[in-house]
Design a protein around this nucleic acid. Structure first.
Lengths: 157, 157
DNA sequence: GTTCCTGTTGCAACCCTATTGCACTAACGT
DNA sequence: ACGTTAGTGCAATAGGGTTGCAACAGGAAC
């Protein structure tokens, strides 16, 4: 990993990592190299939805000494702080994404890909559901399953 | 279990059990006492959402020799035939309900109670989602999580 | 009624995701 | 530098479900 030649212009990812770590510290938590690596990996993930296991594997490339249970515990801590959301996709592992990136989820039951849906679309219906049932809906965690365009019957492979 | 004194007027549950078993037979399957017990228990469940484990326990009261894996395999078979739907509630076990009883689900993340929502309400939004994303949504399996009225913060216990 | 083919079952072992108890380590306020 | 205490690695455990295999049993054909 080559560091930027312009330390006075930190990469946005680095700034975001430190911002989250600061939250963690402000919450009475401690900053360890493992946690820094986990947060960095979380932020630099291309797809915004990572499972705990994927994250552990990625982190362990550079930090083989970071245990899977540490990843789980760190994710728990970050979720408890509201920094990220844990989305349970039904089958298989849960996925995590940053909480500031709010949306609903469509997940393909065959290829397990996740498509994000703007929260606006479901808003009015959710309001109506809440009024009818007295539920307080968990809007960032809404998951609707189905078959994505490529997995629909009639499509090749 | 006392049988009806009027065998010419079978109880509705019995008729429904045999109807499902007939489907199973028509599909090339065989009818066993275990399967009959499982289907009967499924149909006489008061709440329409049973987990595989609950079902196994109920069946084993009268049929202790019916194994858990048999329950899973029978439920799989019935689901494959479209007789029932398996709903994955996120955390904890999946629940099953009859497919002819279509609805969406709100599930409380605290007490795990399930409230049914008429399919009509979400229909238009689902159409829109499908058009936008190319997904073919799994309408009977829609689950939205949240806190039910009794578990909302500020309520007693 | 018997036979035979094949679907079904019980059992135990296993998989996957996640959690936990415990002894040890290390962050960070002082 | 030190002490407190949060965080960590490790191994064991839990929950929910699946699977390989040998034995068993529907039920169509005779």
């Amino acid at each position: 990993m080559i560091e930027s030649p312009h330390p006075s212009q930190p990469r946005p990812v680095d700034a975001a990592v430190e911002a989250i770590l600061d939250e963690l510290r402000a919450d009475g938590g401690r900053i360890t190299s493992g946690r820094r690596a986990i947060v960095r990996s979380l932020l630099s993930a291309d797809d915004h939805h990572v499972t705990a296991d994927e994250l552990a594997s990625r982190v362990q490339v550079d930090h083989p000494d970071v245990n899977r249970s540490t990843v789980y515990r760190t994710l728990d801590a970050l979720e408890a702080m509201g920094v990220l959301s844990r989305i349970s996709l039904g089958t298989g592992g849960a996925v995590y994404h940053l909480a500031d990136h709010a949306h609903h989820h469509l997940v393909c039951t065959r290829c397990r890909s996740v498509v994000e849906v703007q929260p606006g679309l479901l808003g009015p219906v959710m309001d109506q559901l809440e009024a009818q049932t007295g539920f307080s809906l968990d809007r960032p965690h809404v998951v609707i399953s189905g078959l994505c365009a490529s997995c629909r019957p009639g499509k090749p492979s």
